[in-house]
Design a protein around this nucleic acid. Sequence first.
DNA 1: GCCAACGTTGGC
DNA 2: GCCAACGTTGGC
Length: 156
Amino acid sequence: MRYWLLKSEPDVFSFDHLKKRARKTEPWNGVRNYQARNYMRDDMNVGDLGLFYHSSCAEPGVAGVVKITREAYPDPTQFDPKSEYFDKGSKQEEPRWVMVDVTWEAALPNFVTLQQLRDDPALADLITLRRGNRLSITPVDEKDFKRICKLGGLKI
DNA sequence: GCCAACGTTGGC
DNA sequence: GCCAACGTTGGC
């Protein structure tokens, strides 16, 4: 059982959007970074929990918790010429990009801002806080995951 | 909109 | 395999 942090731009797809989806589930498509892909493909398992992080917005931070509910499978948007995620170099027989399904698990009663994360000495190791980090999917230590849930007022 | 940081591409 | 140029991310 592992823990993750998943970034999403709330203007495009927010934690609240996820809650309103059928069965509160959504395929995490559009990941086009090899390291992030490898995390999904090699290390994510059904039942893992993730922090849903809002990036590139007025108030960056963690909105809630999701559960991984389907293991990695090919991302169909890579084969769709009309999709912004289209990759002409990817072959049907050998898909380059994968996605997992995530399901809404719980909201943090109190949104935890990026500033709060930075201000907490206990979270010094959090990858997302590192200078210049741009990875949209990163592993999170169990202690950090629980710490952030606690900051958000969520009993997990 | 700016800009630092990083990933990817492609010529050599 | 090197590395400059370019594109993207994401906080501010």
